[in-house]
Simulated scan of single mutants.
Amino acid sequence: MSQINIGSAQIRSVLEMALTRRPIAYLAAEPALIEANRSWLAPHFLEEGDTWSLNFQTWVLQVDSKVVVVDPCTGNGRPHPIPQFDRLETPYIERFCATGVRPEDVDYVFCTHMHHDHCGWNTQLRDGRWVPTFPNARYLFVRREYERWDPNGADYRAVDYNDGVYERSIQPIVEAGLADLVMDRHRVTPSLEIEPAHGHTLGHAMLSLQSEAQEAYFTGDVFHHPLQLIRPELQFGDCDDLAQAIETRRRLVARGLEREALIIPAHLPFPHAGRLRRDGETLVFAPATGATGSQPD
C-alpha cells in the first residue's frame, strides 16, 4: 500500500496485480526519444533492459468526510481472453481493508471508464450471483460511457477483452439501485469533480481533486506511460477515438503545467504519480515526491 496526501485529502493505493518488464518498444517510441528522456524516465518509468511495469490498482480517497473508490480493477473469478487476467484469485479485498477502510465504509465508487480493469470489483460473486462489493456506496457512471457499453445502446461496439464486463460489473449495480448516471461534468463533493477526458473510450472521464490550494487529477487511461505526454500521438493498446485521445493528452499537459497539479494515472508503479515541468525546452514528468509505502509482492 502507498499513500499520497493532497491538502487535507488522503489517497491510498490498493494493488490487484502488476505486469513487469514490459519492453518499452511496445509504445513504438523511437530510440532517440527514449534516449532524450532517459535521465528522468529512469528508474521509475524506465527500468532495467529498457522495460517498464504496469500496475493494476485502485485509489481509495478520503476527503470532505467521504470515502471515494476510483477504478476498482478487474476482480476475481472472471473469464478473460488475455491469460494474465483470466480467473484471477488475488487478495484484493484483504489489501483494500489494510487501508483502514472496509468495503461497507465506501460512499462513492467512480470508474474512469468501463474497461474490465477499471470496474471489475464493482461486484463480487456470492452464491452464484454478482453482487455489489461496496453495498452502501453510490456508483457514479458517466452516462456517455454507460451508453457506450450498454449492449442495447446505439453506441455499443463489442470488444473481445471486455466481453461480459457489462453483465458482471455494471448491470448488477443498476439492478441493485446503486447506480447514478451522471453527466460528463459532475460535482461529487466540494473538493471533487468528474470531468470529460474522452478518447481512450467514448465516455472516458477523470476525477479532479482540489484541496487546500493543491490539485490532483486521477486520469485513468488518458495515458499509460509518461512518454505519451511528451509525444501525445504515441498509443498503447486499444482506443475508441485516437484523435480525441491525443487531444485529451495535449489538454492535460497544458493544464498540468499551468496548475502544477499532481497527475495520478491508473497504471504507474511507485511512486504512481508525477508533475509536469519544463527543464529548458524539455518537457519532464517528474516523479511525485512525498509518496510513502511500497508495492506488495
Rank of each mutant, 00 (worst) to 15 (best):
D105W: 10
T90M: 12
T289I: 06
F96Y: 11
L27C: 04
N152Q: 15
E145T: 08
R21W: 10
W40P: 15
F45Y: 13
A25N: 08
R21F: 13
N5P: 00
G203R: 03
A286T: 03
R255E: 14
A261C: 09
Q10N: 08
H200D: 03
A266G: 10
D241I: 02
A254Y: 08
L283I: 01
V284D: 07
L125D: 01
R22T: 14
R275L: 00
T201K: 07
D150L: 03
L181E: 04
A42S: 14
H186V: 06
L234V: 13
I264G: 00
L15T: 04
G237P: 10
Y139L: 04
Y217M: 03
S169N: 03
N152F: 08
R95N: 07
T112H: 00
Q214V: 02
L242N: 08
R78C: 07
H115K: 11
D64R: 02
D127G: 15
D117T: 12
E195W: 04
P265R: 10
R250C: 14
N152S: 15
L19V: 10
D86L: 05
T292E: 14
Y161C: 06
R87S: 13
G220D: 04
N162P: 06
F141T: 08
G177L: 15
H272G: 00
Y156G: 10
V142P: 02
S169D: 11
G220F: 05
R144P: 04
A18L: 07
E145V: 08
C97K: 15
I11K: 00
I264P: 03
P23C: 08
L88E: 06
L33M: 11
I263V: 12
H224G: 13
L178A: 12
G164D: 05
